[in-house]
């Protein structure tokens, strides 16, 4: 065991208060990745990842650019299917069912596994219609007012928009738009929420709001977040997976999972020197 050194100390104060209650091993995984590799045509973007995702936990994926963490995130709801040539080896088991199995409808997967993107991608519709969109395409009939209010409240946006529900979502600020995207996502009642650098385009204040929201949502949802911001990973996540990009024997770069563990431990006493270098800011 490494001693927490002075370089990693600055992350200590950020560590999530929830960390203490997280069991050392994931006992009740929602997702289990087994030897997952994701390819873009012939190029292997990320290789042989084996990883559990714990229920109602926040799992952070960190690592330098190009390490395949976003690619891996997009394999949890089969978003990579939309990229021509993308395919996957290994198993992504959701409650024991391989979501890449022959009888699995990717649309059903995406209803269970929602996603929030780097750039707030609100639809060119009213605030109300943005939240109501998911339930509508999923066949919910009738009055959605209550659901819209509930989701906007859960996303900590209701008080700011309740008088402007008919206004275009483009009128909102970036941080509000991102919370609207979160409200839109939970309106479909997913079990898992994937977040791909959700605060990358936001100012610190808006970022803080999203982070608070994430921690709150974790009581009901399982969250996986990709982030470049190590403080953010330390602040909000329960477990962290550190990825890096390495040259293989053929001099081709592949993303690899280096270390996975409780955020508290990974940040204070990383077992792999590459993790320590990265979180102490020596590379990446």
């Amino acid at each position: 065991m490494n001693q927490p050194n002075e370089i990693t100390m600055h992350l200590d104060h950020a560590l999530s208060a929830r960390g203490a209650s997280i069991p050392p091993e994931t006992s009740d995984p929602v997702f289990t990745l087994d030897n997952v590799s994701v390819y873009y045509s012939d190029y292997e973007a990320i290789r042989n990842v084996t990883l559990p995702i714990g229920r109602n936990e926040i799992t952070a994926f960190i690592g330098p650019s190009g390490c395949g963490k976003s690619t891996l995130l997009r394999s949890f709801n089969r978003m990579n299917d939309l990229i021509p040539g993308a395919h996957l080896k290994g198993t992504v088991a959701y409650h024991g069912t391989d979501i890449y199995g022959p009888n699995v409808d990717p649309i059903e997967v995406r209803r269970k596994v929602g996603m929030v993107f780097q750039k707030p991608n609100v639809f060119p519709k009213s605030i109300y219609e943005n939240v109501a969109y998911g339930p509508k395409v999923n066949g919910t009939k009738g009055n959605l007012d209550d659901l819209v209010e509930e989701c906007l409240t859960r996303a900590a946006l209701w008080n700011e928009v309740k008088d402007d529900l008919k206004k275009s979502a483009y009128a909102l600020s970036g941080g509000q738009q991102q919370r609207l995207v979160i409200a839109r996502c939970i309106a479909v009642k997913p079990e898992v929420i994937l977040m791909d650098e959700p605060c990358a385009s936001l100012d610190p204040l808006a970022t803080a709001k999203i982070e608070d929201l994430m921690v709150e949502l974790a009581s009901e949802y399982t969250i996986i977040i990709v982030t470049h911001n190590m403080q953010q990973a330390a602040r909000v996540s329960d477990r962290t997976a550190f990825f890096t990009a390495e040259l293989d024997e053929n001099e081709i770069r592949h993303g690899r999972l280096v270390e996975f563990g409780r955020t508290r431990e990974l940040f204070s006493s990383p077992t792999d020197p590459r993790t320590e270098d990265y979180i102490s800011g020596r590379f990446g």
Binding site: N77, R110, R111, G114, N121, F123, V137, R184
Partner: peptide, 18 residues
Amino acid sequence: VPSGLRDGAYALGSSKRQ
């Protein structure tokens, strides 16, 4: 139309037609 909007729609369980 930015591809982010399509991604957003697919991620909510929309079909191609929707």
